[in-house]
Computed example of a mutant assay.
Amino acid sequence: MGTQLEPIASRPYMPGYGTLPADEGGGLLPWSWAVERLAASHDYWLATVRPDGRPHVMPVWGVWLGDALWFSSGEESRKARNLSIRPFATLTTDNAAEPVVVEGRTDRIRAATTIGHFTAAVNTKYRTDYPVSFFAANVTFRLRPSTAFALTDSNFTGSPTRWAFA
């Protein structure tokens, strides 16, 4: 599903919080650390924007697949309607002690073969047996990261890392 996603930049992040430079306090987290958590997270928090500009946040099941976060929703859900107007979103992992926050543009996936790959990944991860038709009848989204952020609670001042992607 494409080449491996690699950051074009990573840097210390969290101005104003007293965080340490990269050469002190533990340094930056590697992107591989973030990918492990993106793949392992059971749930993700999805943030979108309503047509009137108010935020909307909901938990979703999802998978890290082909260097992107994938999730599905009902066609008439608030999140799907929001993304049809403004396709940008933020997804976060479910562990607040080691969060990974990914921002980017979502794409609605329509190709049956691609939805089939997503279905197989969901069924493997969640030990379910959904048919491809279930996701094809709803909407499937892929969020490709433009930026990501992560930190560890155990090294709050040394670990905050922000990545940028092409």
Results as ranks from 00 to 15, higher is better:
4 Q>G: 14
7 P>I: 00
8 I>T: 14
10 S>W: 00
11 R>L: 00
12 P>S: 13
13 Y>F: 15
15 P>R: 12
15 P>D: 14
18 G>Y: 02
18 G>R: 01
19 T>K: 01
19 T>A: 02
21 P>W: 10
23 D>T: 12
25 G>K: 09
26 G>A: 09
28 L>C: 03
30 P>K: 02
32 S>I: 05
35 V>D: 06
36 E>N: 07
37 R>T: 02
37 R>E: 02
37 R>I: 03
45 W>N: 05
47 A>L: 04
49 V>W: 10
51 P>N: 08
52 D>H: 14
54 R>D: 12
55 P>R: 07
57 V>W: 11
58 M>K: 11
60 V>D: 08
62 G>S: 13
63 V>P: 08
63 V>R: 05
64 W>V: 00
72 S>H: 14
76 E>Y: 09
77 S>N: 04
79 K>I: 02
81 R>F: 03
82 N>T: 11
84 S>D: 15
84 S>W: 13
84 S>R: 15
89 A>G: 09
90 T>M: 13
93 T>Q: 07
97 A>N: 07
99 P>G: 06
101 V>C: 10
101 V>Q: 09
102 V>R: 02
103 E>D: 13
105 R>A: 13
107 D>M: 09
107 D>L: 11
108 R>D: 00
109 I>K: 01
111 A>D: 15
112 A>G: 03
114 T>L: 15
116 G>Y: 11
121 A>R: 09
122 V>L: 12
126 Y>V: 00
128 T>E: 10
128 T>R: 12
129 D>H: 14
137 A>Q: 14
138 N>E: 15
141 F>C: 05
141 F>P: 01
141 F>T: 01
148 A>S: 14
149 F>Y: 15
149 F>D: 00
150 A>R: 00
151 L>S: 04
158 G>D: 04
159 S>Q: 11
159 S>E: 07
159 S>F: 04
159 S>P: 09
160 P>T: 00
161 T>S: 11
162 R>I: 00
164 A>W: 08
166 A>I: 10
166 A>T: 12
